[in-house]
């Protein structure tokens, strides 16, 4: 296939060249192998191509390769550094989270302890206060009872005397002291009941 194309290409070129070379009558200069310059090109080509090849392969291309390698390794190193930094940052964040959780737990424990202690102290204080108040209350009640008893005792005497006076004023008679006292006692007993 390729050779057919090549041969037809050559034929085409030769045809066009003969068509255009009518005026020149010389044919294609490229096919003029009697001209020493045509062949000298090949010699010069070999020399120049070899020199170019040697200079490129020994001097120019290694330079490019060096720069490309340096860039690739620099990028790889930077990526490694970034990856390391990210790991360190992740570790620091994890540590921070742990520390926060631990601190929160400690604080919660201390708050609970302090609350319990304060509650205990308040309970004890209120118990003491209650006991004191109860004692005062009891003492006050005793005094009230005593006062009432003395007041009730005085009332019997006043009532007896008032009854004797009222009886003597109404009847003009001197009332029997014992009977008055008995009557007052029975009435007071009935009231008290």
């Amino acid at each position: 296939m390729r050779s057919i194309a090549a041969i037809s290409g050559l034929a085409g070129v030769l045809l066009t060249s003969s068509a255009f070379a009518e005026g020149a009558k010389k044919g294609m200069p490229q096919l003029d192998f009697h001209n020493p310059l045509t062949i000298s090109q090949v010699v010069w080509l070999a020399i120049i191509f070899t020199v170019l090849y040697v200079l490129l392969s020994k001097w120019a291309l290694p330079q490019v390769a060096g720069v490309l390698e340096a860039r690739a390794s620099a990028i790889a190193a930077d990526l490694d550094a970034a990856r390391g930094a990210k790991q360190a940052a992740d570790a620091a964040i994890a540590e921070l989270t742990q520390a926060t959780i631990a601190a929160q737990a400690t604080a919660r424990g201390e708050i609970a302890t302090a609350t319990a202690a304060a509650k205990d102290a308040a309970d004890a204080q209120s118990a003491i206060l209650n006991a004191k108040l109860e004692a005062q209350l009891a003492a006050a009640e005793k005094q009230i009872d005593a006062a009432r008893a003395s007041a009730v005792g005085a009332l019997r005497q006043v009532a007896t005397e008032a009854t004797a006076v009222v009886v003597s004023r109404l009847t003009g008679l001197t009332a029997d002291a014992a009977a008055v006292e008995q009557a007052v006692g029975s009435v007071l007993a009935a009231r008290a009941a």
């Binding site: 020493p36 310059l37 062949i39 000298s40 090109q41 010699v43 010069w44 080509l45 120049i48 191509f49 020199v51 170019l52 200079l55 490129l56 001097w59 120019a60 291309l61 330079q63 490019v64 060096g66 720069v67 340096a70 860039r71 620099a74």
Partner: peptide, 29 residues
Amino acid sequence: GFSESTLMMVVSSALTLLLLGVGMSAKAV
């Protein structure tokens, strides 16, 4: 037998070397 053809071969080779030599002289990242 140094013709225009040969001269242009020298020029193109020199340009190739110049491109790489000057272009890569900075060695910039």
